[in-house]
Design a protein around this nucleic acid. Structure first.
Lengths: 242, 242
DNA sequence: CGGAATGTTGATATGCCTCAACTAAAGTGG
DNA sequence: CCACTTTAGTTGAGGCATATCAACATTCCG
């Protein structure tokens, strides 16, 4: 599948595009880039000149803290647009790195903006994409601020599983999630020990488990109910087959 | 000052608008609405048809939790656009309420979108505004997830003070912040008791204090340093006079 | 095969939550 | 205008969840 087709498919999840819009997207030139696990795509402080779509693998946004630590903000799957947030910003306020081996496809901002001028609907679709991103950030605020450890972990898993399903990445009730427990902790704002203990509890409850870089969801309804998960904030239509 | 002028001023903080753009914004019809303290402007689940600009007072976004509790996501000052996030979303994933008495000015989505089609630059400016919002959400994730209580409170105060200053709301080293300690707790993900204790410590340190609905910042550099605050994520140019 | 990264477990410490009592301030009605 | 009620702020005691630290097991990788 061509990168632009991945993108078109994603945008069509929530937006109407006519054939001219689709053609405009297809005609965008894009620069391929393969990243090694942990490699940065763009850093806090950089001035972005292009935006990238994830073609394969998983990519993460993160903040670097004063003490050198990391706070992961969001994860991005194939078809996601992890730095559309930089489209109209002078300077990156966060970094974007590959979690596992990932390939991205970068489109210059000027080409994008040119397309948005010519075909406002394409701009609106990408704008909507950035708004859904923002909605995911809001949910992360709520999740990390007001849910107990166990619920928080389960909520995070529910979201990843739900989004992976929408992106066609679920196979045999599991999806890729190549995070270490350390990284999980840096995502959820808890220590590695706590992550480990909650993870074991979740495993024993037979709702979900994280094994070999994959999230295995044995019982999604159970997981969602532990998680207090309501997918409305994802603004998607596709529901996982229970 | 006309509502559209407040908006134009805000957008010009970060975007270039030519005279035709300004004229297009000025020509938008807007419906005034006054809200009582605590009153909702729009609720989670509603289907938004218009977007509002804060003219006066303070407005907040929040999530309603399963247990009936609240998580405040962000605060909005005069000139802010607290539900631009709903512009391209079918259904609100959060609510927006007035914190104190507030007046808003609501513009129908269809008029806005029409303007964006005619004058892409206006759309890009508003888009940028929503991206700055998203950047503030990201910082809230980091603040609430990985900073200790004291630092977290100080960071929140620093942000409000900095943004208020950019919006011309600072007078004699203080700005409006009509939140109860309860609401502060629901913003920062801590209990009211903890908020109270940290607040007192901050007061004793003579960096900042919250009195009579105003945030009084006696020593902004000190507050920022307690807060580990770096305003880059706000993507503004205006710095408070120290 | 050796070393590094990751995961697991236990012991201890501590920050924060919960609850409860109390004070202070603000709003309300007689 | 005062008495009453309500709301917000303050303080203390106790307990729990989570952080921290340390040891050890396991897996991964060169």
């Amino acid at each position: 599948m061509k990168p632009s087709d991945i993108l078109i498919k994603k945008l069509k999840h929530h937006s109407q595009l006519d054939s001219a819009d689709v053609a405009a997207i297809r005609s965008l030139e894009c620069r391929f880039r393969e990243l090694q696990p942990g490699e940065d795509f763009i850093r806090q402080g950089d001035k972005p000149t292009e935006s990238a779509i994830v073609v394969e693998g998983m990519v993460a946004r993160y903040h670097t803290l004063a003490n050198g630590g990391r706070q992961y903000i969001s994860l991005h799957l194939s078809g996601d647009w992890p730095d559309a947030q930089g489209l109209f910003l002078e300077e990156m306020d966060h970094s974007v790195c590959a979690v596992n081996t990932a390939s991205l496809c970068a489109i210059p901002h000027k080409d994008l903006i040119c397309t948005f001028r010519a075909r406002p609907n394409v701009g609106f679709a990408v704008w909507r994409e950035t708004l859904i991103d923002a909605s995911i950030f809001r949910e992360a605020v709520t999740n990390n601020s007001s849910r107990a450890g166990m619920t928080r972990l389960a909520h995070f898993f529910s979201e990843i599983y739900f989004r992976s399903n929408a992106n066609g990445l679920v196979e045999k009730s599991s999806c890729p999630l190549p995070l270490s427990q350390m990284q999980l902790g840096e995502t959820l704002g808890m220590s590695i020990a706590t992550v480990n203990r909650h993870l074991q509890k979740l495993r024993r409850s037979r709702a979900a488990d994280l094994r070999n870089g994959r999230l295995v969801v044995a019982n999604f309804p159970k997981l969602s109910s532990i998680a207090d998960f309501d997918p409305k904030y994802l603004h998607l239509q596709v529901q996982p087959k229970v």
